[in-house]
Amino acid sequence: MSEAVYTSPLAHLENTRDAGNLSVSMSEVSDRGMIDLRGEAGSVKFRQAAKAALGIDLPLKPRSSAVKGDMTVLWLSIDQWLVCCPQNKAGGLVSTLRKNLGEIHSLAVDVTDARAIIRLEGDNVREVLMKGSSIDFTLPEYKAGLVRRLMFAEIAALAHIVTDKPCTIDIYVFRSYADYTWKWIEATAKPAATIGLFGKRSG
């Protein structure tokens, strides 16, 4: 038997990186493993066991994230996190989590294949997102590290602000919406449609 064939959610596109003709740069992040982790944030045992497996404290502040090395943990709810790691480590990490958590009431599931991630970079990213979402991405607290679940272009999505300068935001959507989301951004992020909200204009 031949090797198992693996395809990313946007692999059907000719290019999983924009052709430089948009007001943002856009690419698929296809090498990220994801784990859905649920547990009681109030339980010290749970937090310790999770930390022992992940090497990182779970972020407890709403809409925050924690980063260490190649691991990023995104806060999803008061009892839910999305653990992001290199894809080849996800399976092992789920096993370690389950082992460490043992009888502690929790759930750790590999959901690497459930979502597509589209990375947007550039000065115009916030504006493009606000064309599809009622969230105010210009608020002061919307800076690197912030995680926000939102309705984006009429679908459920998650935005993670990775860096501020340059502005890098990862958009997570369920895998089946990957193609739609990509095309929506392609259609919306046309340079001629740039508004330059509150931008200073010379004159």
Binding site: P9, H12, E154, F174, S176, D179, Y180, W184
Partner: peptide, 18 residues
Amino acid sequence: GTKKGELFLPVRRTAIYD
């Protein structure tokens, strides 16, 4: 707004769509 043509509605595709 953008809701026209192939963006009229979000369309979900399975991995076997193509």
